[in-house]
Write a protein that binds this DNA or RNA. Structure first.
Length: 494
RNA sequence: GGGAGCGUAGCUCAGUUGGUUAGAGCAGCUGACUCUUAAUCAGCGGGUCGUGGGUUCGAGUCCCUCCGCUCCUACCA
Protein backbone atom coordinates (compact mmCIF):
# COMPACT_ATOMS: atom_id res chain seq x y z
CA UNK A 1 0.00 0.00 0.00
CA UNK A 2 2.96 2.46 -0.07
CA UNK A 3 2.56 5.46 -2.35
CA UNK A 4 3.50 4.78 -5.94
CA UNK A 5 4.80 8.24 -6.71
CA UNK A 6 8.43 9.18 -6.06
CA UNK A 7 9.24 9.98 -2.47
CA UNK A 8 9.74 13.57 -1.51
CA UNK A 9 13.30 14.82 -1.13
CA UNK A 10 13.69 15.77 2.48
CA UNK A 11 17.38 16.42 2.88
CA UNK A 12 16.68 20.15 3.07
CA UNK A 13 14.82 19.77 6.35
CA UNK A 14 17.57 17.80 8.05
CA UNK A 15 18.48 19.74 11.13
CA UNK A 16 21.63 21.78 10.86
CA UNK A 17 21.12 23.53 14.13
CA UNK A 18 22.87 22.14 17.19
CA UNK A 19 19.79 22.62 19.39
CA UNK A 20 18.10 19.73 17.61
CA UNK A 21 18.62 16.65 19.65
CA UNK A 22 19.72 13.20 18.66
CA UNK A 23 16.23 11.72 18.97
CA UNK A 24 14.87 14.11 16.41
CA UNK A 25 17.77 13.41 14.04
CA UNK A 26 17.22 9.69 14.39
CA UNK A 27 13.53 10.08 13.55
CA UNK A 28 14.37 12.17 10.50
CA UNK A 29 16.72 9.42 9.37
CA UNK A 30 13.82 7.00 9.73
CA UNK A 31 11.60 9.42 7.84
CA UNK A 32 14.04 9.50 4.93
CA UNK A 33 14.44 5.75 4.97
CA UNK A 34 10.63 5.38 4.84
CA UNK A 35 10.60 7.83 1.93
CA UNK A 36 13.01 5.57 0.12
CA UNK A 37 10.61 2.71 0.69
CA UNK A 38 7.99 4.77 -1.13
CA UNK A 39 6.13 6.10 1.92
CA UNK A 40 5.13 9.73 1.78
CA UNK A 41 5.96 10.99 5.28
CA UNK A 42 2.90 13.27 5.44
CA UNK A 43 0.28 11.39 3.52
CA UNK A 44 -3.23 12.13 2.48
CA UNK A 45 -6.71 10.89 3.30
CA UNK A 46 -7.07 7.23 4.22
CA UNK A 47 -10.34 5.32 4.03
CA UNK A 48 -11.14 3.54 7.28
CA UNK A 49 -13.69 0.79 7.79
CA UNK A 50 -14.51 2.61 11.01
CA UNK A 51 -13.02 4.15 14.10
CA UNK A 52 -11.13 1.86 16.45
CA UNK A 53 -14.05 1.93 18.88
CA UNK A 54 -16.39 0.90 16.05
CA UNK A 55 -14.05 -1.93 15.05
CA UNK A 56 -14.08 -3.19 18.60
CA UNK A 57 -17.86 -2.87 18.95
CA UNK A 58 -18.50 -4.57 15.61
CA UNK A 59 -15.74 -7.15 16.01
CA UNK A 60 -16.15 -10.13 13.73
CA UNK A 61 -13.38 -12.70 13.31
CA UNK A 62 -12.01 -12.79 9.77
CA UNK A 63 -13.51 -9.49 8.70
CA UNK A 64 -11.30 -7.46 6.34
CA UNK A 65 -10.78 -3.94 7.63
CA UNK A 66 -8.83 -0.75 7.13
CA UNK A 67 -7.94 1.28 10.21
CA UNK A 68 -5.83 4.30 11.04
CA UNK A 69 -4.34 5.80 14.14
CA UNK A 70 -1.30 6.81 16.07
CA UNK A 71 1.31 4.20 16.95
CA UNK A 72 1.44 4.15 20.75
CA UNK A 73 3.50 1.04 21.55
CA UNK A 74 5.49 -1.57 19.66
CA UNK A 75 6.38 -4.99 21.02
CA UNK A 76 8.66 -6.59 18.45
CA UNK A 77 9.81 -10.20 18.79
CA UNK A 78 11.73 -11.04 15.70
CA UNK A 79 9.38 -12.36 13.08
CA UNK A 80 6.22 -11.09 14.71
CA UNK A 81 5.45 -7.64 15.97
CA UNK A 82 2.62 -6.42 18.15
CA UNK A 83 1.73 -2.75 18.16
CA UNK A 84 -0.92 -0.52 19.71
CA UNK A 85 -2.80 1.85 17.47
CA UNK A 86 -4.89 4.68 18.92
CA UNK A 87 -7.37 7.14 17.48
CA UNK A 88 -9.80 9.60 19.07
CA UNK A 89 -12.11 6.77 20.11
CA UNK A 90 -9.87 4.09 21.56
CA UNK A 91 -7.02 1.68 20.98
CA UNK A 92 -6.60 -1.50 18.98
CA UNK A 93 -3.80 -4.02 18.74
CA UNK A 94 -2.00 -4.74 15.48
CA UNK A 95 -0.25 -8.01 14.68
CA UNK A 96 2.41 -7.77 11.98
CA UNK A 97 3.86 -11.16 11.00
CA UNK A 98 6.83 -11.54 8.69
CA UNK A 99 5.19 -14.09 6.41
CA UNK A 100 1.94 -12.17 6.06
CA UNK A 101 3.09 -9.14 4.09
CA UNK A 102 5.74 -8.24 1.48
CA UNK A 103 9.27 -8.40 2.89
CA UNK A 104 10.01 -4.72 2.19
CA UNK A 105 6.84 -3.68 4.00
CA UNK A 106 7.70 -5.86 6.99
CA UNK A 107 11.23 -4.46 7.14
CA UNK A 108 10.03 -0.86 6.82
CA UNK A 109 7.70 -1.35 9.81
CA UNK A 110 10.76 -1.17 12.06
CA UNK A 111 11.46 2.33 10.70
CA UNK A 112 8.26 3.55 12.33
CA UNK A 113 8.53 5.42 15.60
CA UNK A 114 6.10 5.83 18.49
CA UNK A 115 3.76 8.68 17.67
CA UNK A 116 3.62 8.07 13.91
CA UNK A 117 0.20 7.93 12.27
CA UNK A 118 -0.31 4.92 10.03
CA UNK A 119 -3.12 3.31 8.09
CA UNK A 120 -3.37 -0.49 8.00
CA UNK A 121 -5.31 -3.13 6.12
CA UNK A 122 -5.84 -6.64 7.46
CA UNK A 123 -8.22 -9.11 9.04
CA UNK A 124 -9.71 -9.13 12.50
CA UNK A 125 -8.71 -12.00 14.76
CA UNK A 126 -8.23 -12.80 18.43
CA UNK A 127 -4.78 -13.63 19.79
CA UNK A 128 -4.07 -16.61 22.03
CA UNK A 129 -4.23 -14.29 25.00
CA UNK A 130 -7.70 -13.13 23.96
CA UNK A 131 -6.86 -9.70 22.61
CA UNK A 132 -8.91 -8.58 19.58
CA UNK A 133 -6.36 -7.57 16.95
CA UNK A 134 -5.84 -6.71 13.32
CA UNK A 135 -3.73 -9.20 11.41
CA UNK A 136 -1.95 -6.66 9.21
CA UNK A 137 -1.44 -7.50 5.54
CA UNK A 138 -0.48 -4.01 4.42
CA UNK A 139 0.19 -0.63 5.94
CA UNK A 140 1.02 2.92 4.94
CA UNK A 141 2.63 5.86 6.69
CA UNK A 142 0.21 8.76 7.12
CA UNK A 143 2.24 11.19 9.23
CA UNK A 144 5.74 11.01 10.70
CA UNK A 145 6.34 12.26 14.23
CA UNK A 146 9.87 13.60 14.52
CA UNK A 147 9.60 14.38 18.23
CA UNK A 148 9.34 11.78 20.98
CA UNK A 149 6.02 11.27 22.74
CA UNK A 150 5.88 11.40 26.55
CA UNK A 151 6.67 8.31 28.56
CA UNK A 152 4.21 5.45 28.01
CA UNK A 153 3.62 4.39 31.58
CA UNK A 154 3.60 7.53 33.72
CA UNK A 155 2.33 9.76 30.91
CA UNK A 156 2.94 13.48 31.02
CA UNK A 157 2.88 14.54 34.66
CA UNK A 158 4.51 17.97 34.78
CA UNK A 159 1.54 20.28 35.30
CA UNK A 160 3.01 23.18 33.40
CA UNK A 161 3.85 21.06 30.36
CA UNK A 162 0.39 19.52 30.47
CA UNK A 163 -1.25 22.94 30.12
CA UNK A 164 1.26 24.48 27.72
CA UNK A 165 1.31 21.43 25.47
CA UNK A 166 -2.24 20.21 25.92
CA UNK A 167 -1.95 18.18 22.70
CA UNK A 168 0.66 16.02 24.44
CA UNK A 169 -1.42 15.80 27.59
CA UNK A 170 -4.32 14.54 25.48
CA UNK A 171 -2.13 11.97 23.72
CA UNK A 172 -0.39 10.76 26.87
CA UNK A 173 -3.25 10.79 29.38
CA UNK A 174 -6.48 9.14 28.22
CA UNK A 175 -8.39 10.29 31.31
CA UNK A 176 -7.85 13.89 30.20
CA UNK A 177 -9.56 13.17 26.92
CA UNK A 178 -12.37 11.41 28.79
CA UNK A 179 -12.93 14.49 30.95
CA UNK A 180 -13.14 16.81 27.94
CA UNK A 181 -15.50 14.37 26.27
CA UNK A 182 -17.79 14.86 29.27
CA UNK A 183 -17.55 18.64 28.96
CA UNK A 184 -18.47 18.39 25.29
CA UNK A 185 -21.40 16.10 26.09
CA UNK A 186 -22.65 18.51 28.76
CA UNK A 187 -22.70 21.38 26.28
CA UNK A 188 -24.34 19.27 23.58
CA UNK A 189 -27.02 18.07 26.00
CA UNK A 190 -27.74 21.60 27.23
CA UNK A 191 -28.25 22.77 23.66
CA UNK A 192 -30.48 19.81 22.86
CA UNK A 193 -32.45 20.23 26.09
CA UNK A 194 -33.12 23.91 25.48
CA UNK A 195 -33.85 23.46 21.78
CA UNK A 196 -36.42 20.79 22.66
CA UNK A 197 -38.19 23.36 24.86
CA UNK A 198 -38.30 26.00 22.17
CA UNK A 199 -35.32 28.11 23.21
CA UNK A 200 -33.25 29.68 20.45
CA UNK A 201 -29.49 30.07 20.70
CA UNK A 202 -28.23 33.53 19.80
CA UNK A 203 -24.90 35.32 19.66
CA UNK A 204 -24.46 38.76 21.15
CA UNK A 205 -21.38 40.98 21.11
CA UNK A 206 -18.18 39.84 22.78
CA UNK A 207 -16.73 43.29 22.14
CA UNK A 208 -18.84 46.02 23.65
CA UNK A 209 -18.55 49.80 23.89
CA UNK A 210 -19.18 49.41 27.60
CA UNK A 211 -19.01 46.26 29.66
CA UNK A 212 -22.27 45.71 31.52
CA UNK A 213 -24.39 43.00 33.06
CA UNK A 214 -22.13 42.28 36.03
CA UNK A 215 -19.72 43.94 38.41
CA UNK A 216 -16.21 42.99 37.25
CA UNK A 217 -13.16 44.60 35.76
CA UNK A 218 -13.21 44.18 31.98
CA UNK A 219 -10.41 43.68 29.48
CA UNK A 220 -9.94 46.77 27.36
CA UNK A 221 -8.91 46.70 23.73
CA UNK A 222 -8.60 49.28 21.01
CA UNK A 223 -10.60 49.36 17.81
CA UNK A 224 -8.54 51.38 15.34
CA UNK A 225 -11.15 51.76 12.59
CA UNK A 226 -13.53 53.52 14.96
CA UNK A 227 -10.73 55.06 17.02
CA UNK A 228 -12.26 53.97 20.30
CA UNK A 229 -11.83 51.69 23.27
CA UNK A 230 -13.78 48.46 23.27
CA UNK A 231 -14.42 46.13 26.20
CA UNK A 232 -14.48 42.34 26.14
CA UNK A 233 -17.82 41.39 27.61
CA UNK A 234 -18.13 40.46 31.26
CA UNK A 235 -21.69 39.16 30.64
CA UNK A 236 -24.13 38.95 27.72
CA UNK A 237 -27.12 39.82 29.91
CA UNK A 238 -27.94 43.33 28.70
CA UNK A 239 -27.91 42.25 25.05
CA UNK A 240 -30.04 39.19 25.68
CA UNK A 241 -32.62 41.39 27.38
CA UNK A 242 -32.62 43.69 24.34
CA UNK A 243 -33.62 40.57 22.43
CA UNK A 244 -36.55 40.04 24.83
CA UNK A 245 -37.62 43.58 23.93
CA UNK A 246 -37.17 42.66 20.26
CA UNK A 247 -39.53 39.71 20.53
CA UNK A 248 -37.28 36.71 21.17
CA UNK A 249 -39.38 35.03 23.86
CA UNK A 250 -37.09 32.14 24.71
CA UNK A 251 -33.40 32.71 24.10
CA UNK A 252 -30.09 31.49 25.38
CA UNK A 253 -26.44 32.05 24.76
CA UNK A 254 -23.65 29.71 25.82
CA UNK A 255 -20.27 31.26 25.28
CA UNK A 256 -17.30 33.03 26.79
CA UNK A 257 -17.18 35.86 29.28
CA UNK A 258 -13.95 37.69 30.08
CA UNK A 259 -13.06 39.15 33.44
CA UNK A 260 -9.86 40.98 34.20
CA UNK A 261 -9.35 39.44 37.62
CA UNK A 262 -6.90 37.10 39.27
CA UNK A 263 -6.59 33.50 38.18
CA UNK A 264 -6.52 30.57 40.56
CA UNK A 265 -7.81 27.06 40.92
CA UNK A 266 -11.40 28.10 40.29
CA UNK A 267 -10.98 31.21 38.10
CA UNK A 268 -9.83 31.57 34.52
CA UNK A 269 -9.97 35.02 32.87
CA UNK A 270 -12.16 33.61 30.10
CA UNK A 271 -14.89 31.23 31.16
CA UNK A 272 -18.07 29.85 29.69
CA UNK A 273 -21.54 30.75 30.88
CA UNK A 274 -25.00 29.71 29.81
CA UNK A 275 -27.56 32.51 30.08
CA UNK A 276 -31.22 31.68 29.50
CA UNK A 277 -34.16 34.10 29.33
CA UNK A 278 -37.83 33.28 29.11
CA UNK A 279 -40.38 36.00 28.48
CA UNK A 280 -43.49 35.97 30.67
CA UNK A 281 -41.66 33.81 33.21
CA UNK A 282 -39.93 34.59 36.49
CA UNK A 283 -37.49 32.99 38.91
CA UNK A 284 -39.92 30.14 39.58
CA UNK A 285 -39.86 29.31 35.86
CA UNK A 286 -36.08 29.27 36.02
CA UNK A 287 -36.04 27.14 39.11
CA UNK A 288 -38.20 24.54 37.39
CA UNK A 289 -35.88 24.66 34.38
CA UNK A 290 -32.85 23.97 36.59
CA UNK A 291 -34.67 21.14 38.36
CA UNK A 292 -35.25 19.53 34.97
CA UNK A 293 -31.94 20.38 33.35
CA UNK A 294 -29.56 19.09 36.01
CA UNK A 295 -31.09 15.63 36.45
CA UNK A 296 -31.30 15.40 32.66
CA UNK A 297 -27.59 16.20 32.31
CA UNK A 298 -26.58 13.79 35.06
CA UNK A 299 -28.61 11.02 33.49
CA UNK A 300 -27.47 11.63 29.91
CA UNK A 301 -23.81 12.30 30.63
CA UNK A 302 -23.05 10.26 33.75
CA UNK A 303 -25.89 7.76 33.77
CA UNK A 304 -26.66 8.50 37.42
CA UNK A 305 -28.07 11.30 39.56
CA UNK A 306 -25.34 11.58 42.15
CA UNK A 307 -21.78 12.83 41.91
CA UNK A 308 -18.88 12.68 44.30
CA UNK A 309 -17.42 15.98 45.45
CA UNK A 310 -13.79 16.27 44.40
CA UNK A 311 -13.09 18.29 47.50
CA UNK A 312 -14.69 16.24 50.25
CA UNK A 313 -15.66 12.94 48.63
CA UNK A 314 -19.24 13.32 49.84
CA UNK A 315 -22.09 12.29 47.59
CA UNK A 316 -24.15 15.05 46.00
CA UNK A 317 -27.62 14.04 44.91
CA UNK A 318 -29.28 15.80 41.98
CA UNK A 319 -32.66 14.15 42.46
CA UNK A 320 -35.22 16.99 42.41
CA UNK A 321 -36.86 18.88 43.99
CA UNK A 322 -34.07 20.83 45.62
CA UNK A 323 -34.19 22.59 48.94
CA UNK A 324 -35.30 26.22 48.84
CA UNK A 325 -34.43 28.52 51.72
CA UNK A 326 -34.46 32.27 52.27
CA UNK A 327 -31.13 34.06 52.68
CA UNK A 328 -32.26 35.66 55.94
CA UNK A 329 -33.36 32.32 57.38
CA UNK A 330 -29.91 30.89 56.68
CA UNK A 331 -28.29 33.86 58.42
CA UNK A 332 -30.61 33.57 61.42
CA UNK A 333 -29.95 29.84 61.59
CA UNK A 334 -26.22 30.51 61.86
CA UNK A 335 -26.07 33.83 63.76
CA UNK A 336 -29.21 33.72 65.91
CA UNK A 337 -32.77 35.00 65.59
CA UNK A 338 -31.82 38.47 66.77
CA UNK A 339 -29.23 39.09 64.04
CA UNK A 340 -31.37 41.48 61.99
CA UNK A 341 -32.17 43.63 65.03
CA UNK A 342 -28.47 44.22 65.79
CA UNK A 343 -26.90 47.55 64.86
CA UNK A 344 -23.79 47.51 62.67
CA UNK A 345 -21.38 47.65 65.62
CA UNK A 346 -23.03 44.70 67.38
CA UNK A 347 -23.20 42.76 64.12
CA UNK A 348 -19.51 43.46 63.53
CA UNK A 349 -18.64 42.17 66.99
CA UNK A 350 -20.74 39.05 66.50
CA UNK A 351 -19.20 38.40 63.08
CA UNK A 352 -15.67 38.82 64.46
CA UNK A 353 -16.56 36.50 67.31
CA UNK A 354 -17.62 33.92 64.73
CA UNK A 355 -14.24 34.27 63.03
CA UNK A 356 -15.21 36.51 60.11
CA UNK A 357 -12.93 39.48 59.46
CA UNK A 358 -15.05 42.59 58.89
CA UNK A 359 -14.10 46.02 57.53
CA UNK A 360 -15.00 48.72 60.12
CA UNK A 361 -16.61 50.82 57.33
CA UNK A 362 -19.14 48.15 56.46
CA UNK A 363 -22.82 48.48 57.24
CA UNK A 364 -25.07 45.72 58.48
CA UNK A 365 -25.87 44.59 54.94
CA UNK A 366 -22.21 44.10 54.01
CA UNK A 367 -21.39 42.37 57.27
CA UNK A 368 -24.29 39.98 56.76
CA UNK A 369 -23.15 39.23 53.25
CA UNK A 370 -19.62 38.52 54.43
CA UNK A 371 -20.98 36.14 57.05
CA UNK A 372 -23.03 34.41 54.36
CA UNK A 373 -20.02 34.16 52.04
CA UNK A 374 -17.52 32.99 54.59
CA UNK A 375 -19.60 30.89 56.93
CA UNK A 376 -22.84 29.80 55.38
CA UNK A 377 -22.49 29.20 51.64
CA UNK A 378 -19.85 26.50 52.07
CA UNK A 379 -22.17 24.53 54.37
CA UNK A 380 -24.79 24.14 51.61
CA UNK A 381 -23.61 20.84 50.20
CA UNK A 382 -26.71 19.42 48.52
CA UNK A 383 -28.35 21.42 45.70
CA UNK A 384 -30.04 24.43 47.32
CA UNK A 385 -31.88 27.50 46.07
CA UNK A 386 -31.09 30.46 48.30
CA UNK A 387 -33.84 33.04 47.78
CA UNK A 388 -34.82 36.57 48.85
CA UNK A 389 -31.39 38.19 48.62
CA UNK A 390 -30.89 41.89 49.54
CA UNK A 391 -31.50 44.00 46.44
CA UNK A 392 -28.23 45.98 46.39
CA UNK A 393 -26.40 42.79 45.41
CA UNK A 394 -28.66 42.11 42.42
CA UNK A 395 -29.39 45.39 40.59
CA UNK A 396 -30.76 43.67 37.47
CA UNK A 397 -33.53 41.81 39.30
CA UNK A 398 -36.99 42.77 40.49
CA UNK A 399 -37.95 43.22 44.11
CA UNK A 400 -40.01 40.62 45.93
CA UNK A 401 -43.65 41.70 45.73
CA UNK A 402 -43.98 41.48 49.53
CA UNK A 403 -40.68 43.15 50.47
CA UNK A 404 -39.01 45.91 48.44
CA UNK A 405 -35.70 45.38 50.27
CA UNK A 406 -35.31 41.88 48.85
CA UNK A 407 -34.74 40.74 45.28
CA UNK A 408 -36.92 38.03 43.78
CA UNK A 409 -33.99 35.81 42.83
CA UNK A 410 -32.23 32.61 43.75
CA UNK A 411 -28.63 31.65 44.05
CA UNK A 412 -28.39 27.97 43.25
CA UNK A 413 -25.65 26.54 45.46
CA UNK A 414 -24.12 23.07 45.16
CA UNK A 415 -21.19 21.62 47.12
CA UNK A 416 -20.79 24.91 48.94
CA UNK A 417 -20.35 26.98 45.78
CA UNK A 418 -22.64 29.19 43.79
CA UNK A 419 -23.41 27.45 40.53
CA UNK A 420 -26.22 29.44 39.00
CA UNK A 421 -28.15 32.64 39.77
CA UNK A 422 -31.76 32.89 38.63
CA UNK A 423 -33.79 36.11 38.52
CA UNK A 424 -37.15 37.56 38.08
CA UNK A 425 -35.74 40.12 35.67
CA UNK A 426 -36.16 43.82 36.19
CA UNK A 427 -38.24 45.24 33.34
CA UNK A 428 -39.16 48.56 34.94
CA UNK A 429 -36.93 51.19 33.26
CA UNK A 430 -37.32 53.64 36.16
CA UNK A 431 -36.34 51.06 38.77
CA UNK A 432 -33.57 49.75 36.56
CA UNK A 433 -32.01 53.18 36.10
CA UNK A 434 -32.16 53.82 39.84
CA UNK A 435 -30.49 50.47 40.65
CA UNK A 436 -27.73 50.89 38.06
CA UNK A 437 -27.10 54.48 39.17
CA UNK A 438 -26.79 53.31 42.78
CA UNK A 439 -24.31 50.66 41.72
CA UNK A 440 -22.27 53.02 39.52
CA UNK A 441 -22.08 55.69 42.20
CA UNK A 442 -20.54 58.89 40.76
CA UNK A 443 -19.41 57.09 37.64
CA UNK A 444 -22.64 57.62 35.67
CA UNK A 445 -21.03 57.10 32.27
CA UNK A 446 -20.94 53.38 33.08
CA UNK A 447 -24.71 53.09 32.75
CA UNK A 448 -25.71 51.49 29.46
CA UNK A 449 -28.21 54.12 28.28
CA UNK A 450 -29.22 52.16 25.21
CA UNK A 451 -30.21 49.27 27.49
CA UNK A 452 -32.44 51.58 29.52
CA UNK A 453 -33.91 52.91 26.27
CA UNK A 454 -34.69 49.34 25.25
CA UNK A 455 -36.53 48.82 28.56
CA UNK A 456 -38.49 52.01 27.91
CA UNK A 457 -39.79 50.38 24.75
CA UNK A 458 -41.18 47.62 26.95
CA UNK A 459 -39.47 44.39 28.00
CA UNK A 460 -41.87 41.58 28.86
CA UNK A 461 -41.67 40.24 32.39
CA UNK A 462 -39.11 37.46 32.26
CA UNK A 463 -37.11 34.90 34.15
CA UNK A 464 -33.41 34.48 33.54
CA UNK A 465 -30.55 32.34 34.73
CA UNK A 466 -26.79 32.05 34.30
CA UNK A 467 -25.03 28.74 34.66
CA UNK A 468 -21.23 28.50 34.87
CA UNK A 469 -20.29 25.71 32.47
CA UNK A 470 -16.73 25.32 33.71
CA UNK A 471 -17.87 24.87 37.29
CA UNK A 472 -20.69 22.56 36.29
CA UNK A 473 -18.16 20.44 34.43
CA UNK A 474 -15.87 20.42 37.46
CA UNK A 475 -18.75 19.26 39.59
CA UNK A 476 -19.84 16.49 37.21
CA UNK A 477 -16.30 15.27 36.55
CA UNK A 478 -15.05 15.50 40.14
CA UNK A 479 -12.35 18.00 39.18
CA UNK A 480 -10.89 20.56 41.58
CA UNK A 481 -9.01 22.81 39.14
CA UNK A 482 -10.78 24.86 36.48
CA UNK A 483 -7.68 24.40 34.32
CA UNK A 484 -8.49 20.73 34.04
CA UNK A 485 -11.81 21.45 32.32
CA UNK A 486 -10.52 24.17 29.96
CA UNK A 487 -8.53 22.86 26.99
CA UNK A 488 -6.15 25.79 26.85
CA UNK A 489 -6.17 27.54 30.22
CA UNK A 490 -4.52 30.91 30.63
CA UNK A 491 -0.82 30.77 31.53
CA UNK A 492 1.87 33.41 31.58
CA UNK A 493 3.86 33.70 28.36
CA UNK A 494 7.17 31.94 28.78
C1' G B 1 -0.71 41.65 45.65
C1' G B 2 1.31 38.66 50.32
C1' G B 3 3.36 33.77 52.19
C1' A B 4 5.44 28.71 51.36
C1' G B 5 7.47 25.16 47.97
C1' C B 6 9.31 23.33 43.26
C1' G B 7 12.40 23.44 38.33
C1' U B 8 18.14 17.45 37.18
C1' A B 9 18.33 13.24 30.05
C1' G B 10 12.78 13.31 25.16
C1' C B 11 9.42 11.52 29.55
C1' U B 12 9.01 9.77 35.00
C1' C B 13 12.24 10.33 39.01
C1' A B 14 16.93 9.58 42.57
C1' G B 15 21.11 12.63 43.86
C1' U B 16 23.56 11.91 51.43
C1' U B 17 27.26 17.12 55.28
C1' G B 18 29.45 21.13 49.39
C1' G B 19 33.98 16.49 47.30
C1' U B 20 36.26 11.66 41.78
C1' U B 21 33.80 11.46 35.39
C1' A B 22 25.65 13.65 37.89
C1' G B 23 22.51 8.11 38.30
C1' A B 24 17.96 4.73 37.40
C1' G B 25 13.43 3.23 34.67
C1' C B 26 10.84 4.20 30.14
C1' A B 27 11.98 5.96 25.32
C1' G B 28 16.38 5.72 21.57
C1' C B 29 20.52 2.87 19.00
C1' U B 30 22.96 -2.35 17.91
C1' G B 31 21.94 -7.55 18.33
C1' A B 32 18.70 -12.08 19.76
C1' C B 33 13.63 -13.77 19.70
C1' U B 34 6.83 -16.25 15.63
C1' C B 35 1.16 -14.69 20.58
C1' U B 36 3.19 -9.86 23.08
C1' U B 37 0.36 -6.20 25.79
C1' A B 38 4.66 -1.45 31.14
C1' A B 39 7.11 -8.01 26.27
C1' U B 40 11.94 -10.19 27.60
C1' C B 41 17.45 -10.75 27.29
C1' A B 42 22.65 -8.73 26.09
C1' G B 43 25.35 -4.40 24.83
C1' C B 44 25.73 1.06 23.61
C1' G B 45 24.75 6.22 23.38
C1' G B 46 22.12 10.33 25.70
C1' G B 47 22.84 16.31 30.50
C1' U B 48 23.60 24.52 29.38
C1' C B 49 21.26 20.33 36.70
C1' G B 50 15.30 26.82 34.62
C1' U B 51 18.44 31.89 33.86
C1' G B 52 22.29 35.25 35.34
C1' G B 53 25.56 36.41 39.21
C1' G B 54 28.09 35.32 44.05
C1' U B 55 30.63 32.42 48.19
C1' U B 56 34.36 28.39 47.95
C1' C B 57 40.41 24.96 46.53
C1' G B 58 35.71 22.72 44.76
C1' A B 59 28.42 24.11 43.71
C1' G B 60 23.00 19.95 41.08
C1' U B 61 23.69 20.90 46.53
C1' C B 62 24.92 27.20 50.04
C1' C B 63 23.52 32.84 49.05
C1' C B 64 21.30 36.68 45.68
C1' U B 65 18.62 38.31 40.86
C1' C B 66 15.31 37.06 37.19
C1' C B 67 11.80 33.47 34.51
C1' G B 68 8.07 29.78 35.00
C1' C B 69 4.94 26.39 37.73
C1' U B 70 2.26 24.48 42.23
C1' C B 71 -0.16 25.22 46.97
C1' C B 72 -2.12 28.67 50.69
C1' U B 73 -4.16 33.71 51.04
C1' A B 74 -6.74 38.35 49.08
C1' C B 75 -10.45 40.17 44.69
C1' C B 76 -14.16 37.91 41.13
C1' A B 77 -18.36 33.54 38.98
Amino acid sequence: MPDKRPPRILAAIMPTDSTDNAYREQRIRNLNALSEHGHHPYGEAFTRSGTLAELRAGFEEGREVQAAGRLMAVRAMGKSVFADLRDGTGRFQLYVGRKDLPEALFDAFSLLDLGDHIGVAGTLFVTRTGEPSIHVTSWKLLSKAILQPPEKFHGLVDTEERYRKRYLDLVANPDVRARFNIRIRIMQEIRAFLAARGFQEVETPMMQPQAGGAAARPFVTRYHALDCEMYMRIAPELYLKRLLVGGFDKVFEMNRNFRNEGLDRTHNPEFTVLEVYEAYGDRHTMKRLIEELLPHLCRQVLGRLSVESAETGESIDFTPPYREVAYRDLVRERMGDGWFSLDAAAARAAAEAAGVAVDPQWDHLMITHEVYDKLIEKTLRQPTFVTRIPRPFVPLAKACSDDPALADVFEFVVAGKELCPGYTEQNDPFEQRRALAAQAGDNTERIDEDFITALEHGMPPAGGLGLGIDRLTMLLTGTEAIRDVILFPQLKAR
